[in-house]
Design a protein around this nucleic acid. Structure first.
Lengths: 231, 231
DNA sequence: CCTCATGCATACCGGTTGGTATGTCTGGAC
DNA sequence: GTCCAGACATACCAACCGGTATGCATGAGG
């Protein structure tokens, strides 16, 4: 029944949702790469909602209308599917949302603060309920699976480096205090950011998110050189 | 075989580990409360290692030598066992380690920093690998189980309040800047602290833990009123 | 000495899990 | 028309899951 609904006439016809994914992710895709992408997106959602260990392949298959044979044609195991989600969904979305804007920005600290606000606005509700996908996976899987740890840490490193570079740029321009270590500060800023999201999720409270975000923003502004007289 | 090893002669004789737990937790216990406590401790370890959802009752039973009948005699379900772990293991340990020392301290901010260092020294290795038990559970279960969220948030609230109270005390003494809001700052400090532990866990790197901790300590010191001239 | 509740121990259950083996359909090369 | 590989679909599997029903030893109370 589900199958009938999903596979309308020809097998190239996919349900509306998958078409959206199809267009959003990669433009034209050869042959059945759509199926793979569909699975990746569904796996991401499933993992985001339940965590990797509790993520159910059957549920992913039910949600996509894809069968188990197809899944195991593209991914050799649940773990490999998880790895692919990290590398192809999570990594790229962090890259697009944080790393590129920070790299291309004229005043990166302002950009960082704007991205925090943008993130709260755009994905606020989802983030409040489920937290940060990257951090969720890292907390769950880092201690028990090296493969996940490697891949996740690579994403973190890229993110962290983009923050450190931003701080260094502003430092050389004299916009940021000379006595801070950009690398170390970047580590702390990223930790605090993830901590804020996590706290808000734990409390399921938007107020916590804002209170916490304000704290971080104040900290960031405190990194700037004091201008004018004391106050 | 396992059973033979564990139940030596009389059924009051418990393995060495459980005796240690027995003494550590509650002093003399009437009758079979030992079994309950043994289960709680083992369940805590299992949950700490794998998370709640992936925690296996069979593994807990294997590790303790207790049987399923005994477990379900004390706890009506896996979920109730989890709740009990939060209330009787996690809550009390946070209370003992953080809340009481902060409440009884003369200079709470210094005490807080000392507790951070003490925590890194005492449970550093475990914390590096597995993170903070409270935060782990909160991140995993808050979105999907209200019962967990309630109980965990209560622990967080107590912890947070003890930090806010500490800041307020120092503020009234003129040791801490008057322009900060103790409540909001406490939220951020706690978030940053959990963020630091989480980052170190994600990276599985002691350097990250120290770098991150230093960042937080600097932030805390920045809350103090500037003494002497500008510098 | 009998009773009865406490404190377990054992056996079993239906459901779900990740994983696999085999079958089938289809479009393009020749 | 034939062949073959890519792209799935179906059926099945052992392992494990949380949970339950029942059996049984034991010490205290009457």
């Amino acid at each position: 029944m589900v199958k009938d609904t999903l596979q309308a006439e020809t097998e190239n016809t996919l349900p509306e949702r998958s078409k959206w994914i199809f267009h959003r992710c990669c433009g034209a895709m050869p042959g059945s790469e759509q199926t793979r992408q569909l699975l990746l997106e569904a796996a991401f959602n499933e993992i985001y909602e339940y965590g990797f260990q509790a993520a159910s392949l059957s549920r992913i298959l039910k949600n996509t209308g894809v069968t188990k044979g197809a899944l195991y044609y593209y991914f050799s195991s649940k773990t490999e599917l998880g790895y692919a989600v990290v590398e192809e969904i999570i990594a790229t979305s962090i890259e697009e949302f944080w790393v590129k804007p920070l790299r291309d920005s004229g005043s990166p600290i302002d950009t960082f603060i704007e991205l925090m606000q943008k993130s709260a606005e755009e994905t606020g509700a989802e983030m409040l309920r489920l937290g940060c996908p990257l951090n969720n996976l890292a907390q769950e899987m880092s201690p028990i699976d090296e493969g996940f740890r490697d891949r996740l840490e690579r994403v973190y490193a890229s993110w962290r480096n983009s923050i450190a570079a931003a701080l260094e740029v502003e430092q050389q321009r004299g916009q940021v205090r000379a006595d801070i270590d950009p690398e170390q500060t970047a580590i702390f800023v990223l930790a605090a950011l993830e901590g804020c999201v996590g706290s808000a999720k734990a409390a399921q409270s938007m107020e916590t998110l804002y209170a916490c975000g304000s704290g971080l923003i104040e900290y960031l502004k405190g990194l700037r050189v004091e201008q004018g007289s004391r106050s």
